[in-house]
Nucleic acid binder design. Structure first.
Lengths: 137, 137
DNA sequence: AAAAGCGTATTAGTATTCTTAGTACATTAT
DNA sequence: ATAATGTACTAAGAATACTAATACGCTTTT
């Protein structure tokens, strides 16, 4: 598989965050499936011309987010979503971030209904390829 | 009007962000109405026992977000939402943040529909007090 | 005109974050 | 064994972020 990750030096986001986001999105869209192996730390670092530590940090974040499982000596693999044990803290974090987003949307003059509709539309763009579902023909 | 803003030293968020968020939320919930004057930079700083520059920074952020209008020498006032000219950049920013949120939700194992429902529910908690609308009895 | 109240600008110091570098270690695969 | 994997640790430098101190200019009030 070709390398889809690419970092933007001009971005305001740290390199390791860029990696985390791109992999997270790929998993959400099921472009990376359960059990898929991520590039080796040193290999990805070489391709991106960055320090291996930076890639390792990204992988650490992904593991703490329960998105991947690492087996030392073997590699880093996409976790099985069925094993996600989302606790209250996860949901609370999500709710908080939603509120911040809603606040911003309302302050931009959008109506609550429009905001919710926009969110649902964007969700559908993901769900088309979501885990356990298939796009309807 | 009493002072509703309170900062938490133990928070992971910078002081000026805490101020921005609390005022933003107050505006979204219409607890602060159009034309309302915010506390003077020095006054609020004195009450919070922080540097006036920190408050000023918060106000600057709020102004760039078009949430308030500042008139040097006079004060800082809540903007008229009808004058919001939300441009493409605003919407794009919002959409991006939505996508990040959706990604996180899906990766937590939530289904698209559940995510959208959760968002809609939380939106309604705001809309009850939203600008131009009244809570139905 | 003076005084008081307001936001702004500039500068600086401190703390934190990010990235790199180098080395070493433990585990797994070949 | 050898190679490949993730991990741990220390160190260092650079960049960024945050807060503070001070001075300035505009507006309102007196």
């Amino acid at each position: 598989m070709a390398l889809w990750i690419q970092i933007s030096p001009g971005s305001d986001k740290p390199i390791y965050v860029q990696i985390v986001e791109q992999i997270s999105e790929a998993v959400a869209k099921n472009e990376l499936a359960t059990g898929d192996k991520l590039p080796a730390v040193r290999k990805l670092a070489a391709e991106l011309v960055i320090n291996p530590n930076t890639v390792a940090r990204a992988y650490t974040v992904l593991e703490q987010a329960k998105l991947v499982t690492t087996k030392t000596g073997s590699g880093t693999f996409v976790s099985d979503p069925k094993l996600y044990s989302r606790d209250a803290a996860d949901i609370n974090m999500l709710a908080e971030r939603m509120d911040t987003l809603i606040t911003r949307g309302l302050n931009l003059g959008l109506k609550g209904g429009d905001l919710a509709a926009m969110f649902r539309d964007r969700t559908n763009k993901f769900v088309g390829k979501q885990k356990g579902e298939e796009k309807k023909k």
